Each structure stands twice: as C-alpha cells, then as structure tokens.
Simulated scan of single mutants.
Amino acid sequence: MKQFYLLISLIAFSTKLFALDIEPNLCKENEHVTFSCATGEKVISVCSSKLSYHGNWYLVYRFGKVDSDPELEYLSTAKDFEKKFNYAYDGYSKGSTQELKFSIGEYTYILHEDRHRYRDDSAGLFVRKNNKTIKYFPCNNSNVYDKRTFSLYDLKKEGFSVEYPSFIGTKAP
C-alpha cells in the first residue's frame, strides 16, 4: 500500500513539473519549437524543420487554439526567409530584446521577447495596421525565461541576418 501511495505521489509530482516546464505549442511532431507561448486561450508558435538553415529548411508562424487548425499560418523557406521575416536582436548589459516581424497585406505582426535583470520579462505579439497597434497578445507567463523553454534566440544561433529591434515590447524601467 505504501508503494502505491509513493507511485501516485511521483506521478502527481512529475505531472506538475511537466506542466510548469513546457508551454503548449502548435508545432507538428517533426518540427522544432523555436518559440511558443500561450496567450489567453490561444497559442503563438514559431516552428521550424529540424534541418539546418542551409538546405531544405523552413520556418512557420502559427496562431490559434491547440488541437484545432491554426487561425493564421505564415511560412517561409530558407531561400525566402529574409524576404518574408525580419529578425532583430539587441543584447545589452542585464538584458536583451528580440523581435520577429512579418507582414501580410496591410497588417504587420511583431513577435517580441524581452529579458531584463531588474524588471519583469515580457513576450507577446503586436498586430499593427498603418503603423498603429490594433491588438496586443501578451504571453500568459510574465517571466519569459524561467517558465518557457523556447526562445527566438535560436534564430540568432542559426546565423540569420540580424537587424536592430524597434523595442516595441520593451517596458520602461
């Protein structure tokens, strides 16, 4: 009987740890999760093929509910990545800012991830039209790096061209 309670305790503990460490995502089983976070009842995900940047590689942005078709999906291959997406990064003392931007028609989508030593981290998605923010989807987890295992920084490690960020999501100290 003691072993049974021990087993139940272990299962409950490991399930709780699993839930804390892994964000939901909209990536397919054969894809690498580059970024993902829950925002309300929906999920923002950036997924890539597991192949390297050079060759048959792709990056896809998805937005929607888990276990449903995405409400929005935007795909690029290695050949057209820099025409479709703009990746921006700036690292500075005690923090960094990263952004992934793309446009569809008159709408611009800016996914940001900000890390700061002396203020709250933040991440989310800005939807803009005519250079004005019409909607912001903040990630549910306010402390980005402690609660999420995926980061836009993976794009920098792959060697993509890096632009200077707009700092749209950076909170003032």
Rank of each mutant, 00 (worst) to 15 (best):
M1E: 00
Y5N: 01
Y5C: 06
L7F: 05
L7R: 04
I11W: 08
I11R: 09
T15M: 01
K16V: 15
F18C: 13
D21A: 06
E23Q: 14
P24V: 13
P24M: 13
N25F: 08
N25D: 07
L26D: 02
C27P: 11
K28I: 05
E29F: 05
V33L: 06
V33R: 00
V33I: 06
T34K: 01
F35A: 12
S36E: 01
A38Q: 15
T39Q: 12
T39D: 12
E41N: 11
I44C: 02
S45V: 01
C47I: 05
S48V: 03
S48W: 01
S48K: 05
S52D: 09
S52Q: 00
Y53I: 06
H54N: 14
G55S: 11
W57L: 03
L59K: 03
V60H: 02
R62H: 08
F63L: 08
F63T: 03
D67N: 09
S68Q: 12
D69C: 03
P70W: 04
L72E: 14
Y74G: 04
Y74D: 02
S76F: 04
A78M: 02
K79N: 01
K79Q: 06
D80A: 09
D80H: 06
E82W: 02
F85R: 00
N86G: 09
Y87W: 03
A88S: 06
D90E: 01
Y92S: 11
K94V: 12
K94Y: 11
Q98E: 12
K101M: 10
K101H: 07
F102Q: 06
S103E: 01
E106W: 00
E106F: 00
T108R: 03
Y109H: 06
I110T: 05
I110P: 00
L111E: 08
H112F: 15
R115T: 15
R115W: 15
R115Y: 15
R117A: 15
R117G: 14
Y118W: 00
D121I: 11
D121G: 12
D121F: 08
S122N: 06
A123N: 08
A123D: 12
L125V: 14
L125N: 10
L125M: 14
F126S: 04
F126I: 10
R128H: 00
R128N: 01
R128V: 04
N131E: 13
N131C: 11
N131Q: 13
T133P: 10
I134M: 07
K135F: 02
K135D: 07
Y136L: 03
F137N: 08
C139I: 11
N143V: 14
K147H: 14
K147E: 13
K147M: 12
R148A: 11
D154F: 06
L155T: 02
L155Q: 05
K156L: 02
E158N: 10
E158Q: 11
S161Q: 15
S161K: 15
S161R: 14
V162Q: 01
E163M: 04
Y164S: 11
F167C: 09
F167K: 07
I168Y: 06
T170Q: 13
T170G: 11
P173N: 12
